[in-house]
Design a protein around this nucleic acid. Structure first.
Length: 645
RNA sequence: GCUGUUGUAGCUCAGGGGUAGAGCACUUCCUUGGUAAGGAAGAGGUCGAGAGUUCAAUUCUCUUCAACAGCUCCA
């Protein structure tokens, strides 16, 4: 009998008969593993445990603790959902139903049948019932002809469309119970392990992501092997909602919106403004140190400016419309980005190669008419301030400058404790080059330079096609919000197009005219989005240097209000921000209120403190730190009060 | 922009065809207290906006605006 060599993750090699199944390998290792195994990775592909292995292979067995195990589990759950839905709604048409980071969804066409919370519960119940039958997921290879025939008979146009795009010989079906689905797999062995099920919500989604197509219902759900894990997950979701920046922004009085001012136009309240200005100070200092020159440009620019830049052609129709003046031939646009203005600053005088790089920085407020459905707290707004800068440099300086910007972004992230970011190289969509301007050669060069710079700094990058700006590729730093939604913060972009369009030049050492390269960069991205993500990242417990109120002075009774006022005054002289709680309330109450407001330090003053000329320090979330002299307090936390270095 | 859900006091929410309620916050008074909510009284709302049905609409219907979830988009 012939054998296959199976290499385990630890490097050990075992021999099994040809056609051995994953589950059998698991059993040969241990009964426990076999019981918990959900899928198997074979030479990098994830397979069913029941699929025979015919050749030598490196394998890894997945359990619930592996991403691949969860993937198969949730993928199978999507099938279970579909089975339940079909049982309750015969004739329902199915789109796609993949596993996602947390759970799965299935796009379905229910026609005009209403589908809400009650219906979700009913399907959920049916799923539990079907899971208990522990029916096996059976894989079968089918010919394209048979596949088409099956779904034609079932009258499911979406699946037929999917099959059309598949190659004959590569089509597989999976069946569990009475439900058959077109599916590449893999799946867990049977429905039994799916014990805890929650259908989360229903939303609309265009078929194949194209807004010209029909909108299907997308039903999200999540499942777990144990009820307790589901409960923990739902609890975690609730906890995450508590740190939503929209909720905390309101509670901590950081920002607000007004219907009268207009949607997507944030109003920064006094406390939010302090936070924002501290971030600006931090960035200003870092940029001065990195050789940037601050500039200021107007909030509007003539239409011609954006015709030159190409932005008018690309976004003119979807922007705030031009501002008119008494002169009918005149049109101005609210500036949607700062680069054209900065190009004009570059052009105020002839530049020598010795002048480069020139780094122009501006906290530039821009206005973009984002689709109404896109607006989201502070993360997606119609008026926002970029910590923008444009670096004009010689072609031979691009990589070095790019690396310096990466260092700046990493410095910002480190200073604020952002550790879980993704560096994304955003490339052009090679299938749809019409979306972009500029020659192929320049694109390829820019894409290469970005990747090289990122590699040189040891960044782990993910390349994503189709995410580039229309004028060039980007290196984007993505960070997740409290609910796991990904947002782009820092961005660095190499641009060969704008210098051409604006005919930017410098005189080289050869006394000839040359074209500079432009690097767009914004380490925060925008102050709005950065603050939003920061709020969620620290759950409103800002580092001391950023906290709008750093201290609260709490007199034990009204008799000590005068002393407390003196404490506040002395602290203000040392640039420490805070407030005096002189309300006619008990100390317990004042402490509670200051804790709820997440004020980093509470300074209690009463009989003892007045006579010793001290303050009793209480730290937010930690409690009593004992009495100390005011100078001693300020000095011992001086480093935390200051901008980070 | 699309699909769906929601809109009642500053905030969180209950109610429901016969012109509104709670808790917190707010104001005043009592209380002057030692590390997470002292007590009492009071003030607050064209029930998102517009139209329709009705003797009567905050409640039902339509339109509109906004928020939320997802999709699409994101210079």
């Amino acid at each position: 009998m012939s054998v296959v060599k199976i290499t385990l993750p630890d490097g050990s090699v075992r021999e099994h008969p040809v056609g051995v199944k994953g589950i059998e390998i698991a059993q040969s290792i241990s009964e426990g593993l076999a019981r918990n195994s959900l899928a198997i990775e074979v030479n990098g592909e994830i397979w069913d445990l029941s699929r025979p292995i015919l050749q030598d292979a490196s394998i890894k067995i997945f359990t619930w603790n592996d991403k691949g195990g969860k993937y198969a589990f949730w993928h199978s759950s999507a099938h279970l959902f579909a089975e339940a839905l079909e049982a309750l709604y015969p004739g329902v048409k199915f789109g796609i139903g993949p596993p996602i980071e947390n759970g799965f969804y299935y796009d379905v066409d229910l026609g005009d049948v209403p589908f809400g919370d009650e219906e979700l519960l009913a399907v959920e119940k049916k799923m539990v019932e079907l899971a208990k039958t522990n029916s096996q997921f059976v894989r079968s290879e089918v010919s394209k002809k048979d596949a088409v025939e099956y779904f034609t008979q079932k009258n499911d146009p979406y699946k037929l469309e999917l099959i059309e795009g598949l190659e004959d010989g590569s089509i597989t079906f999976y069946q569990q119970g009475n439900f058959v689905d077109l599916c590449r797999g893999p799946h867990i062995p049977s429905t039994g392990p799916i014990k805890a099920i929650k259908l989360l919500n229903v939303a609309g989604a265009y078929w194949r992501g194209n807004e010209k197509n029909k909108m299907l219902k997308r039903i999200y759900g999540i499942t777990f092997p144990k009820q307790k894990e589901l409960e923990e997950y739902l609890f975690m979701l609730e906890e995450a909602k508590k740190r939503d920046h929209r909720k905390l922004g309101k509670e901590l009085e950081l920002f607000a919106f007004s219907e009268k001012v207009g949607m997507g136009l944030p109003l920064w309240l006094p406390k939010g403004t302090i936070l924002r200005e501290r971030l600006e100070q931090f960035m200003r200092r870092a940029q001065i140190r990195a050789g940037y020159d601050p500039v200021v440009t107007p909030h509007i620019g003539s239409k011609q400016l954006y015709v030159t830049s190409g932005h008018y052609e690309k976004y003119g129709k979807d922007s705030f419309q031009p501002i008119h003046t008494p002169d009918e031939s005149e049109e101005f646009l609210l500036k949607p980005m700062n680069c054209p203005h900065h190009c004009e600053i570059y052009k105020v005088k002839p530049r020598s190669y010795k002048d480069l790089p020139i780094r122009l920085a501006e906290f530039g407020t821009v206005y973009r008419y984002e689709q109404s459905g896109e607006l989201h707290g502070l993360t997606r707004v119609r008026g926002f301030t970029q910590d923008d800068a444009h670096i004009f440099c010689r072609p031979d300086q691009v990589k070095e400058e790019f690396i310096k910007v990466i260092d700046l972004v990493l410095f910002v992230f480190k200073s604020l404790g952002f550790e879980n970011y993704t560096a994304q190289v955003s490339l052009r969509d090679p299938e749809n080059k019409a979306k972009y301007i500029g020659e192929d050669a320049l694109w390829e060069r820019a894409e290469r330079e970005i990747q090289e710079a990122a590699d040189e700094r040891g960044l782990k990058t993910v390349a994503v096609k189709g995410e580039a700006a229309f004028y060039g590729p980007k290196l984007d730093f993505m960070v997740k919000d409290a609910l796991g939604r990904s947002w782009q913060l820092g961005t660095i972009q190499v641009d060969y197009q704008l210098p051409q369009r604006f005919e930017l030049e410098y005189i080289g050492s050869d006394n000839q005219k040359h074209r500079p390269v432009m690097i767009h960069r914004a380490p925060f991205g925008s102050l709005e989005r950065f603050v939003a993500v920061l709020i969620e990242h620290c759950a409103g417990n800002f580092p001391l240097w950023l906290a709008p109120d750093q201290i609260a002075v709490l007199p034990i009774s009204e008799r000590f209000n005068d002393y407390a006022q003196k404490v506040i005054d002395l602290l203000r002289e040392r640039d420490i921000r805070g407030f005096l709680d002189d309300r006619n309330e008990k100390i317990g109450r004042k402490i509670r209120d200051a804790e709820v407001k997440k004020v980093p330090f509470m300074l209690l003053v009463g009989e003892k403190e007045v006579s010793d000329n001290k303050v009793s320090v209480r730290k937010h979330g930690e409690g009593d730190k004992g009495a100390m002299d005011l100078n001693e307090f300020v000095n011992s936390f001086a480093k935390d009060f200051a901008l980070p270095d």
